[in-house]
Design a protein around this nucleic acid. Structure first.
Lengths: 149, 149
DNA sequence: ACAAAGATGTAGCCATGTCTACATTTTTGC
DNA sequence: GCAAAAATGTAGACATGGCTACATCTTTGT
């Protein structure tokens, strides 16, 4: 039964798939900020024992009010906690995200280098690319790297 | 002379490099919208002969006022032209961008597939990844693909 | 030819993410 | 211990990119 689509023509065939890909990319972008900040906070805590707003701001390349707003969002999303005039800390959820993001970042950089991208370019590009690497793609990257280890 | 940096400590050494990477990624993101729309408009013109606001909106997965705003920005940036109630057309600059973006997109998808990413995931992820692929990385991707052609 | 349907324009709202400017609190250095 | 410096908070402006709602223009179908 059915048998629709009697050749919908070249492009008359609406492309919901394409629209979904764009929507998906936009969603990923909104997650990117959370990921960057949680990883950054985790880095700071590991390296200096605490994550202060000023340090976060400097590392992210933004002014401190911007960092404050971002941290507020992290708190709203249950990824971080903080008290006025005190440092920022990650919740368990936040720490897990940081761990996952860190691992993914490393894999992306390694993959880029493995296919011949210069190290410096790999580091720069990975910062933007990583947020769009799905689980399936990440797995493929890991397998590829393993295959040449 | 100088000889500064007598071991600035683990992280006391401010990391302007990291901040620059984030800034760079943010800039790339602001370019992404322009790239997506110019390529989409080019696609529509190739396939249907014209690019109407409604079609652009549907393909991008947004409402038509959003597409109108995006086109306004394209016009501001000298990438497109249009007249009220008529279709949208690319300027020479816009057409060049579309061409470049199309080529880069194809290379990214091919590279992902070449390293083992499933085709469907490659298409989806490429939509977000491509905007963060620098010239150096693109060249490396091309070389890598050539090396296995 | 004209009414209905469809496409486009425009206004205005909301959320984000950035900034500057200024207020307040905490920390530092004498 | 206290003044100066640094950090943090907060307010408010601006640009972007979404949206809905409504107005207007074009195209379609009979």
């Amino acid at each position: 039964m059915l048998t629709p689509d009697p050749d919908p023509g070249p492009l008359d065939a609406v492309e919901p798939a394409q629209a979904e890909r764009f929507s998906h990319a936009r969603t990923a972008q909104s997650q990117a900020l959370l990921e960057d900040y949680t990883e950054m906070i985790d880095d700071l805590i590991r390296e200096t024992g605490e994550a202060r707003i000023t340090d976060i701001a400097r590392q992210m390349g933004v002014t401190h009010p911007t960092a404050t707003k971002a941290v507020a969002r992290l708190k709203r999303e249950g990824l971080a906690v903080s008290r006025p005039y005190r440092g920022v800390f990650l919740t368990e959820t936040g720490a897990e995200m940081a761990e996952r993001v860190r691992g993914r970042h490393r894999v992306v950089v390694d993959l880029l280098i493995a296919v011949g991208v210069p190290a410096e370019a790999a580091e720069i590009d990975a910062e933007g690319i990583e947020h769009h690497v799905s689980a399936a793609t990440l797995r493929a990257f890991e397998d590829f790297l393993k295959g040449r280890g």
